Amino acid sequence: MPTVLLTGSSRGIGAATRDMLEARGARVIGHSTRGDDARDGATDGARDSASEIAADFLDPPAPQMLWEEALDTAGGEIDVLVNNAGLFRGVPLDASDIEWLDAWEDTLRINLTAAAQLSRFAVRHWQETGRPGRIVHVASRAGHRGDSPQHWHYAAAKGGMLALHKTIARAYAGEDILSFAVTPGFTDTAMAGDYLASRGGPGLLADIPLGRVAEPEEMAAIIAFCALDAPASMTGATIDANGASYVR
């Protein structure tokens, strides 16, 4: 079974994905950061272990340091990259200019630029070794339909991740380097719960025909499928998982 580098693996979707991949026999090298504002796994190291590497993606060199340490831990071979780490922090339109800009830069750095850096290292690794590889990008429904007025930056970052995914898929399929994306809607994690409460709680569920938010294990099942089982012809695909709150 493959070796997987999974960012944001300490909680939420990331922790559920780690459990599912390991139950399938994959070797998972996890990642955690420090901070209080991350979503679905990019936070305070709630599940630190010997195979979980700390890296703060707000620091531009951190993705390269993570990749190199993970590659060393893996003995020089990584088969799958899962870009799951993310920051979900709102900023009001009438915030100060510097506060608004800082929120954009932090969100784009963590949600998009770090994922792009890691994807680049992964693609180059597979090209240099001649090995096949897979990248799974955990994007968001927001990348398709936008988000709240306080989350322009989050929607823009996730839309950028989808464009990154499609570009990788089209550019490297002939080298057996595959790319998949998952676009969750609301998922039952701590940060999503806070967001639901801030937007009216149960009233917001009226926008979800399924009548509930997703469970992290549901997202993990899709990620694991893309990482381990999806046929090569699916490269470039984006899998929506939002309870029919956005259909294309």
Rank of each mutant, 00 (worst) to 15 (best):
E105V: 02
R124L: 12
G146M: 10
L93F: 07
A139I: 03
L210N: 04
A171W: 08
H125P: 00
N83R: 10
D176E: 15
G130P: 09
L81Q: 13
T189C: 04
N83A: 13
D194F: 11
F186N: 12
R131F: 12
W104I: 00
L210Y: 06
A95N: 02
A192K: 02
G130E: 13
A181E: 14
P209R: 11
R109E: 11
T187W: 07
P209K: 12
L101I: 01
M191E: 09
D147R: 00
S140G: 15
N111I: 03
W152M: 01
D79N: 13
G86H: 02
L118V: 09
V91D: 05
E175C: 01
G193W: 07
A157F: 11
A163R: 15
G76Y: 11
R89L: 09
L162D: 12
E99Y: 02
H165W: 09
S119V: 03
D188L: 06
H151S: 09
I78C: 07
D97H: 04
A171H: 07
F88T: 00
G86C: 00
G130R: 11
D94P: 06
T73H: 06
Y172G: 14
G200L: 05
G174K: 14
V138M: 01
R141D: 11
R124P: 01
K166S: 09
G75M: 13
G146F: 10
A114K: 08
G75E: 14
P202C: 01
G143C: 06
S140L: 10
R170H: 14
G211T: 12
R120E: 04
H125G: 00
A190E: 14
G76T: 13
L205K: 12
W152G: 04
T113R: 15
G211N: 14
R134C: 02
